[in-house]
Design a protein around this nucleic acid. Sequence first.
DNA 1: CGGCTATTTGAATCAGATCAACCCGGGTGG
DNA 2: CCACCCGGGTTGATCTGATTCAAATAGCCG
Lengths: 272, 272
Amino acid sequence: MANIMKAPGSARVDCETCQARVDGLCAGYSASTVEFISGYRTNDRHLKAGQDLLNLGGPCDAIFNLVDGWMFRYTILADGRRQILDFALPGAILGFDSPLGATITFGAQTLTDVVVCVIPHKALGPLSQRQPDLGLRLAWLMSRERSLSFDHLTSVGRRSAHERIARLLLELFVRSRSGWTGYQIEEMHLPLTQEHIGDATGLTGVHVNRVLRDLGKEGILKFSYRRLSILEPDKLMDLAGIDQELLQSWTGSGRSEARAQGDLAEGCRQAA
Amino acid sequence: MANIMKAPGSARVDCETCQARVDGLCAGYSASTVEFISGYRTNDRHLKAGQDLLNLGGPCDAIFNLVDGWMFRYTILADGRRQILDFALPGAILGFDSPLGATITFGAQTLTDVVVCVIPHKALGPLSQRQPDLGLRLAWLMSRERSLSFDHLTSVGRRSAHERIARLLLELFVRSRSGWTGYQIEEMHLPLTQEHIGDATGLTGVHVNRVLRDLGKEGILKFSYRRLSILEPDKLMDLAGIDQELLQSWTGSGRSEARAQGDLAEGCRQAA
DNA sequence: CGGCTATTTGAATCAGATCAACCCGGGTGG
DNA sequence: CCACCCGGGTTGATCTGATTCAAATAGCCG
């Protein structure tokens, strides 16, 4: 997975080849602009799978640009119940949460080995002075995360267990590919346990298992031991209640030749 | 409620006295800065209670600064199930959703008579060029909305019906006051039906009624016919599982003498 | 092999949904 | 002034999707 990490720990992420430039804060910027932004970085951080990036209750004074690996954000209630809020893929920004110095109210944990590059909150002001569309871009990024969160809220609030799970798996698949036609039979490595899926969908691990088993029996998909196979894309999309265009909004969109409207960088360009 | 609306329809919102300057895009800006921003406004819009601001499936080419009144955002599923995503109070920004021209994926409906001031998306670029912290500010605003959404997600995913309802009512109370010590017995007008509460918490209207009835019997609060009375603040906060500091994060925070960390404008100031 | 974590399966239970009345208050129109 | 209506709110009986508890299995690693 993490080919960037060959030289473990010490190596500094090279902005030229950074995965996060595909669809994140630096997407579509020229080399010189990226260079400029990079000047404000402090040291990268490398984490093993299963670690927390920032600890609950502590302060947070930087944003983290997820360069490689998968993470998730979560809250823990007093009695131990956990809710997973969203999954972060390369290009995600973490740590832009409570304005400055305020204590963190939700955690962020790695699902795989991970690399993040770090930009102190303090740098955001100066950065956005010299690169004025950066603030807007960050705003669009946040807005997209909020939309995703709205989507999850709708799932958990109003959809059946089967719908929720179908939808989540589909979302993660599509986002990890940055797009999908929706017609191909596909397979991928999904670094989640059934417990994770339960905590993300507001269900029990046990119940997730039963549903997964159902979906398997119906030949729609298989998921066990971290391997997901989508066997009947159309049935799955139908069950999940997904229209093709929604698929796009989950990623920066079409990537390739800027599939018209949905693209983040495009959005900023037009707005400017 | 809407004293700004005395001259109905035609009157243009006066930025000097605009409620949304307390905690929104324009919060804390000097008169001249607000003036500058205002130059990019197009005509205000005045809506009656129960109307939709933007219609689903259509495009959206402007952001709306909610100046007066209450609204909510929602999604409707194919079979009619509705999920309310959040409630918008004065100072909220609506319409900053899908990047540009893309079709709207969730609706926004008024709960009371409402006034919004309108800034075309096209203006955002130029605006943030000349007022570079505006983008960042918008980003913080979006980030706060996302945090709220995370909160709702946690409620709906992991809390009991009693907890969810207690929490929602508390949230709305606190946000509408922009803060609360948490000790006073209080009363307010809440422009919601039990159906609304159900759709926001992922419950049935019927069940909301039963819970509300319970809470009434226990003397914790009363809510009927749009009037909410908090009778036992401490019990309510306990039931809702709220710590004092979380209260702050729901608003721009402490308002008055910038309760240190949580304040939006403060955040931008420090970052700059 | 032994220990660990994840998955699987069954049986009992429960929180909340569904269905179906009925009530209440405040318009509206006759 | 009253009859009617209509959008909430209330209440009970019943049903069910999902939880809980508990025990067995399966893969993984040292």
